[in-house]
Amino acid sequence: MDRHLLTLALGMFAIGTDSFVVAGILPLIADSMHAPIPTAGQMVTLYALSYAVFSPVIAALAAHWSRKGLLVGGMGVFILGNMMTALAPTLSVLLGSRLITGLGAAMFSPTATAVG
C-alpha cells in the first residue's frame, strides 16, 4: 500500500475511533468530573456536531489552501483538542476541547477523502 494512502487511512481511523471511544469510558469521565453521565455525554454530541457543521464549511472556505497544509493543520488541531481533553481540569474545558477536536476532524476528513 502506498505510504501516503496509509497515512490518510490512519488519520481517518483515529478520527472515527475518537467518535466512539468516549462512549465506552463515559461513566469514568463523569465520575472524575463530578458530573452526571448525561452531562458528560455531551462530549460525544459536541464532537459530532462540530465535525458535522464545520466539515462542509471548511471544505468550501479552504478550497484554495494547500491540501497538505490543511491535512497537517487539521491533524494538529485534532491532536491538540485530544490533549486538552486529556488534561481538562473542569467539565466546561472538557466540553470545549471536544469542540476543538471536532474542528480538527472537520479540517482533515473532507481533505483526506478528496486526496484519497
Rank of each mutant, 00 (worst) to 15 (best):
A48H: 04
F54G: 06
T85S: 15
A52C: 12
I58L: 15
D31V: 04
A62W: 08
M84N: 05
L5P: 01
M75D: 08
A88I: 01
I79G: 04
S55R: 03
V22I: 15
A9V: 05
L80D: 02
T7H: 06
S32P: 03
M33Q: 09
D18N: 15
I25S: 15
P110K: 11
D31A: 14
G41D: 09
P38T: 05
N82A: 13
A9N: 03
M1L: 10
A23I: 08
G104C: 08
L87F: 05
I100E: 05
A86P: 03
A59Y: 01
L87D: 02
L87N: 07
G102R: 08
M83D: 02
M83P: 00
K68H: 07
V115L: 10
T85N: 10
L28Q: 11
G69H: 10
M75E: 10
F54I: 09
W65R: 09
A30C: 01
G24I: 03
G41P: 07
F13P: 05
I58Y: 07
T17D: 02
L8D: 12
L80M: 10
M12I: 14
A30E: 09
M12Y: 01
F13G: 01
A9W: 03
S109H: 10
P27D: 06
A40R: 09
L94I: 13
G73R: 06
V57H: 04
A30M: 11
L26D: 15
L95A: 05
L91M: 13
V53H: 07
R67L: 08
M75H: 08
L8Y: 00
P56A: 05
M1S: 03
T45N: 13
S50K: 00
A9G: 01
N82S: 14
I58W: 02
S32Q: 14
V44S: 04
T39L: 15
G96R: 06
H64N: 13
P38I: 04
D18Y: 05
P38K: 07
Y51S: 11
L5Q: 07
A112I: 12
L6C: 00
S55C: 09
S19P: 03
A14E: 09
D2T: 00
G81P: 05
V21A: 11
I100G: 07
Y47P: 07
V77N: 08
L91I: 13
G69M: 02
M1P: 09
S66A: 02
A23P: 11
A23N: 10
L10T: 02
V93C: 10
